[in-house]
Computed example of a mutant assay.
Amino acid sequence: MDVISEAVEDLRIGQVYGRRAEVPATFAGRFEACDGVGFHVLLRGEGWLMSEDAAPMRMRAGDVAVVPHGAAHGFGPDPCALAALPPAPTGFQDAPPEPMPVDMICGIYRLERGGSIHPFLRSLPGLLLIASDARMAALAALLTEDLDRPREGMLVNQRALVDLVLVHALRLWHAEHRATDPAWDALTDPGIAAALREIHDSPEAPWTVDRLSRTAGMSRTAFTRRFTALVGEPPMAYLIGRRLHRGAQLLRETDAPLAAIARRVGYATEFAFAGAFRREFGVAPGRFRRLTEPLLLRDAG
């Protein structure tokens, strides 16, 4: 099971934004908690990363900071308490007339229309500091160029580049922490991993707790207890979430009729799917499809 791909695909039901920020060496700002995932790549300069749950971390040019589940965090020239930082400016900023000492690109996936962050991302610390490599430097350069020079195809290109930066950052983190921090504890248990693979490969199948527990080679009670402890929610709640997230992806990425999408994610009728979808995302499927039409990355951040 490719847990990084699964996690990033889940984020595509939201909006993806990216921007470049060139600021003075004295810049200090706090980014509030949000429903989503973000990253910062420091192109030039240095500073300190602050969070609520960890000691300040020194960030140097080339480093990447990843916020896997939207935790509040900050950046400044000196280590300090997160609460001591002023709110950071948001939205698109005009480029300064001359280069600034600190230069970074930022990317964020906002889940404003509901949905949830994958358990793999929720299992990570609130703020990751990752040393770059040549591939990350190349991806950052491509994204920076596209942010600076809007042109045909920028929407598709920037979304793809934001995906690639996040995927590569997560790969680097996993490679560095493989021995002490498995990609996701649920995947270290053979039985739970087997059940998760079945759910992800065939969410439309008529799964029950009994059937999943047999796949895991466990009793129903032991399976439910173990699955809930490792994944963070009971098996059927997780299954429903997978079905609805897949449905949201299909609504966003295809023009398939609602009835066809409902069948592809395991619902007998479009009405049953629509009711479950509204409970999860707060809007009807048709309205979700209209609201999540792609936006230009430079318009927000």
Results as ranks from 00 to 15, higher is better:
13 I>N: 00
14 G>K: 01
16 V>P: 03
22 E>W: 12
24 P>D: 15
28 A>T: 13
36 G>A: 01
40 H>T: 14
40 H>K: 10
43 L>E: 08
45 G>S: 13
46 E>A: 15
47 G>L: 03
56 P>G: 00
60 R>W: 02
65 A>Q: 00
67 V>D: 01
68 P>K: 00
71 A>F: 06
75 F>T: 07
79 P>I: 07
86 P>D: 00
89 P>R: 11
90 T>E: 14
97 P>A: 10
97 P>K: 14
114 G>T: 10
120 F>C: 06
121 L>H: 05
124 L>A: 01
130 I>Q: 04
131 A>F: 04
131 A>Q: 09
131 A>N: 11
139 L>G: 03
140 A>L: 07
143 L>G: 00
143 L>H: 03
145 E>I: 11
145 E>V: 12
149 R>N: 15
154 M>H: 13
158 Q>S: 05
163 D>K: 02
171 R>I: 04
172 L>Y: 06
173 W>F: 09
174 H>Y: 07
177 H>L: 03
179 A>I: 00
182 P>L: 06
182 P>M: 11
184 W>E: 01
185 D>P: 06
186 A>L: 11
188 T>P: 00
192 I>H: 04
200 H>S: 06
205 A>E: 13
205 A>G: 12
211 R>I: 07
211 R>H: 14
214 R>W: 05
217 G>T: 12
218 M>D: 01
222 A>S: 08
224 T>Q: 10
242 R>K: 11
245 H>T: 07
247 G>Q: 10
248 A>I: 07
249 Q>S: 08
253 E>P: 02
258 L>C: 14
258 L>A: 10
258 L>D: 11
263 R>Q: 15
263 R>H: 15
265 V>Y: 13
266 G>D: 13
271 F>S: 12
273 F>L: 14
277 F>Y: 10
279 R>A: 15
280 E>R: 15
282 G>C: 13
282 G>Y: 06
292 T>F: 01
293 E>N: 04
300 A>H: 14
301 G>W: 13
